[in-house]
Design a protein around this nucleic acid. Structure first.
Lengths: 223, 223
DNA sequence: GCTAATGTACGAACTGGTGAGTTAGTCATA
DNA sequence: TATGACTAACTCACCAGTTCGTACATTAGC
């Protein structure tokens, strides 16, 4: 997720024994491996082999495969939380703010396919690792507050007509961004269209923004 | 997917030896098992144990675990194709037709969570089984033609302003429906909202329709 | 010297796949 | 319609290779 650089080198440049470094390296490798082949498909031995340390260290630091996967998820969600905390769109008018926010979500999903895969995998496991994690239960998302405030101001100024709350709008935006990355393989194989083709990137980015804004600003038939 | 009824009973009521029946039973069980725990997580022994036949028969009929999964996918996609062939919305006006089509997609996704899981799993494997299947490569979707015709008539009558093609609109509709089912666990765990809560069903169904129609009929800023 | 950190070697249980043999059903023929 | 040859359908036991996890030994750093 973060620093997969400098892979081999017997524990890099710093101290020979560096717990934090060892832990981080295991997490880096495990993230790649779990994202690549899923939880059940990943092999602890393979993960260990790809680190500069040994399998024993995985059990020493994380306890087991299950807890390792949970730790991977925790860090991955941490990254997206950080990104969302940098969100700075509230100086824009509501329409522009929502579009910008959708675009940032779009970009983030595109830039972190491994995260998308991990989330897909965790859903296959019915979010049992999130449930087991103290760090991840009901953490929500920093973006939610931002969306909430933009929505309120947009409704106040009469620009937004739709009756959605922040969570639902977040779901709407996420669904488009997530599907495009997560399902690109089956979609491509079935319909012969690559949803993440760089040449079509702007097309889909605009489509998302248009869709969200159209929804929020449409005149509703019977209210 | 189809007939998971009458599970045990040493080959049911019909003939004692019935190849078609045995094959179908293996597929039924395998579908459930693959959807439940993923490809790597599924155990051929477990699948065999849940049938009234033996593991050897799985290899006899399908060749191996990989081909069994492919066969499961082929049948699952067959079901959705059949459903889409029943589509009968072209007698409606374009707006109503698209909304109805979106609702049918919504309903189908909701009613087939196992199919959704299989698609998620297949995407983790980068659609390699679809690629390996003769039946599934580029099959497209019957719905696509329907969407294409509705879109054309809607644009002709000036109702639809958006410049989307059928595939992209299909992606938009699918993304919402798919996300709601596929990601309900992580979304629920993180945001405390159950996207498939029956009490909210109509809410999300309407939201999808509103979204698609708003997108298609919105006045575009600069054209 | 004490402890946190690390490495080695191993094992019990599992897992996909197969070899070899058996049985149910079919059908041509007497 | 009884029979026997034939084949598709099926069972069982087993193997070779993994795979998670751990017991035990060792080392670095304070």
């Amino acid at each position: 997720m973060t620093s997969v650089d400098e892979p081999a080198r017997p524990h890099g440049n710093g101290r020979l024994r560096d717990a934090a470094r060892t832990r981080a390296e295991i997490l880096d490798v495990a993230t790649l491996e779990f994202a690549r082949v899923g939880y059940a498909g990943a092999r602890v031995d393979d993960i260990a082999a790809r680190t500069s340390t040994t399998k024993r260290m995985i059990y020493y630091y994380f306890g087991g495969k299950e807890q390792l996967f949970t730790a991977v998820l925790e860090r991955a969600y941490g990254v997206i939380r950080e990104a969302e905390q940098q969100l700075d769109v509230e100086h824009l008018d509501p329409v522009a703010a929502i579009r910008r926010l959708a675009e940032l979500t779009f970009d983030h999903h595109e830039q972190h396919p491994d995260f998308i895969r991990l989330v897909s995998i965790e859903n296959i496991h019915e979010a049992e690792h999130i449930a087991a994690s103290e760090k991840l239960g009901r953490i929500g998302s920093p973006a939610l507050d931002v969306i909430g405030r933009i929505l309120a101001s947009g409704r106040e100024s009469g620009l937004f007509t739709a009756e959605v709350d922040a969570v639902d709008l977040h779901a709407m935006i996420s669904s488009f961004c997530f599907f495009r990355v997560a399902n690109r393989h089956t979609f491509g194989a079935l319909f012969g269209r690559d949803l993440v083709d760089p040449a079509q990137r702007e097309h889909y980015r605009a489509m998302l923004g248009d869709m969200v804004i159209a929804y929020l600003t449409a005149e509703r038939a019977t209210d």
